[in-house]
């Protein structure tokens, strides 16, 4: 993770890590999750889903498990869970 100033206790504080799940066929391509993810984890897929929308895809492994995409998505199409045993 990039910091503009390294916190003094950065070695001790555990940064939570998440894994984001996308249920592509529910997505209506509004882009809310992509635009408002604080870590810019997501981008539009080049592919279409069955409804003709471009769902998001994961472009980086920086997910913080903040659940914001999950709250903001109008379609119940994205959510995050804690990444377990995937290293920090």
């Amino acid at each position: 993770m990039k910091y503009w100033r390294v916190p003094l206790d950065s070695n001790e504080v555990q940064v939570s890590r998440g894994k984001v799940h996308i249920i592509e066929e529910r997505c209506k391509g509004c882009g809310y999750c992509i635009e408002y993810c604080p870590r810019e984890v997501l981008e539009f897929s080049k592919a279409y889903n069955a409804k003709g929308y471009h769902p998001p895809v994961v472009r980086s492994e920086d997910c913080l498990n903040c659940h914001y995409c999950e709250l903001l998505c109008p379609e119940f199409a994205i959510f995050s869970v804690e990444a377990i045993g995937e290293g920090v």
């Binding site: 209506k28 929308y53 709250l71 109008p74 379609e75 119940f76 959510f79």
Partner: peptide, 29 residues
């Protein structure tokens, strides 16, 4: 794993009628 709100939604009625980009679904969540 299912979406964490699925137990509160009648999933047989999803997708809902709200248009792409409508904020109502977000307020509902």
């Amino acid at each position: 794993v299912p979406h964490p709100l699925e137990d509160l939604v009648r999933m047989d009625r999803i997708p809902h009628i709200w248009c792409s980009g409508c904020g109502t679904g977000s307020v509902f969540a």
